Simulated assay, not measured.
Amino acid sequence: MADRQISLPAKLINGGIAGLIGVTCVFPIDLAKTRLQNQQNGQRIYTSMSDCLIKTIRAEGYFGMYRGAAVNLTLVTPEKAIKLAANDFFRHHLSKDGQKLTLLKEMLAGCGAGTCQVIVTTPMEMLKIQLQDAGRIAAQKKILAAQGQLSTQGGVQPSAEAPAAPRPTATQLTRDLLHSRGIAGLYKGLGATLLRDVPFSVVYFPLFANLNQLGRPASEEKSPFYVSFLAGCVAGSAAAVAVNPCDVVKTRLQSLQRGVNEDTYTGFLDCARKILRHEGPSAFLKGAYCRALVIAPLFGIAQVVYFLGIAESLLGLLQDPQA
């Protein structure tokens, strides 16, 4: 029964470790995804993921690629832990006598896990997007200021360039949002986050479980770590691309600052309608390959750490009085 007692804490710790490792590896790609999704036609600063990362390094330095990473690293631990542990919890309670779950029950378990995870994800995403997108807004203002100066040459003398506004911090943003909008301010875009993360989990978890099962050498053994890694990568990238339209809408809704002449939105349907009208259907796939590149290794790493059972070993040592 000792294993049973340490099962939930171990799952939470494993999820946290996996999230920290994964986010550290892929965060610059996630930053590029956010900036590509937020730029609208007529205000394009970046042409691709590589162009975005190169310009970010030039303008903001190497650590500019990790804008918002502190928020993500702080909150990704409970987020990943809740998602992975909740999926196991629902799978356990939906199974009968250890029998294999039907596809419908696997999807229901994923749905439950995604819903639980959104409680932590929404404020994290809200703050992270403001911090990630600040560099894009600053770059756009700099370009417009330079264009304004050029237009005045030969006539009125150009004015001196305005000093750059200080970049917001996560603490500042949280304080301002709580002061102006209350706790609901941190949950702006909750509906869009639910529409992204619940379908993601519904697709991801059953697909991962079935792919992972294919590489299992015998019914009573675990799959090798590389099978879990590849299954996590494939399932993660497939689910990420499938829900990318909702991710684009969510990113736009959660961005509090807009560039010059960029649309504002009143809700999910208004945002989707304006994107379709002004930018065309292809806009819903903006950042899709970046998101797939983020999610694939993130969930591959998560599943390997989770299935290696690092936390079980650590907790076993802590519980051993002779250790």
Rank of each mutant, 00 (worst) to 15 (best):
P199C: 04
S282Y: 08
C52A: 14
G300E: 02
Q257K: 06
I13N: 10
R196T: 11
K222V: 02
K55V: 07
K222R: 09
V71S: 15
A145V: 02
V241I: 15
L173K: 01
L75W: 12
D263H: 01
F63Q: 12
R273Q: 08
L318C: 05
D30Q: 15
N14I: 10
E79V: 02
T171V: 15
A86T: 15
D197Q: 10
Q117S: 15
Y204R: 11
G61R: 14
H92Q: 10
G135Y: 02
R277M: 02
S151N: 13
A10F: 12
M126W: 01
I129M: 05
G280C: 03
V234G: 08
L317Q: 10
H92N: 09
A85I: 05
E312P: 10
G316A: 04
A162Y: 05
I29Q: 00
L317P: 01
L211V: 10
A138G: 06
Y204H: 15
Q149I: 07
L8A: 05
S95T: 12
V227T: 12
N41D: 11
V202S: 06
D247Y: 12
L315F: 01
Q99N: 13
T171W: 09
I21L: 13
R216K: 15
L131R: 02
I310S: 12
V243P: 02
R258A: 10
R181Q: 14
H278N: 09
L194S: 01
Q117F: 11
P245L: 04
C246R: 06
M65T: 15
D270Y: 00
K141P: 00
L131I: 07
A139I: 14
A165Y: 09
N210Q: 15
Y62M: 14
K96T: 04
G110T: 06
K188S: 03
A162V: 04
P168G: 09
P297A: 08
S255H: 06
A109T: 03
R91G: 15
T121K: 00
G189E: 01
I275A: 02
T264E: 02
R44D: 06
A164P: 11
T34Y: 04
K83G: 10
V260T: 14
G215K: 08
A160V: 13
R58A: 09
A109L: 12
A146I: 03
L20D: 03
P168N: 05
Q40T: 07
V118R: 00
V248F: 08
P158V: 11
P224G: 05
I275G: 00
L150R: 15
L104S: 07
Y289H: 05
L314R: 04
L178A: 00
D133C: 09
N210L: 13
T121E: 07
L36I: 15
T152I: 01
C290Y: 02
V304E: 04
N41A: 14
L318V: 12
K250C: 12
H92R: 06
A160I: 08
I301W: 03
E161L: 13
L8P: 05
Q39E: 09
G110D: 00
T152N: 04
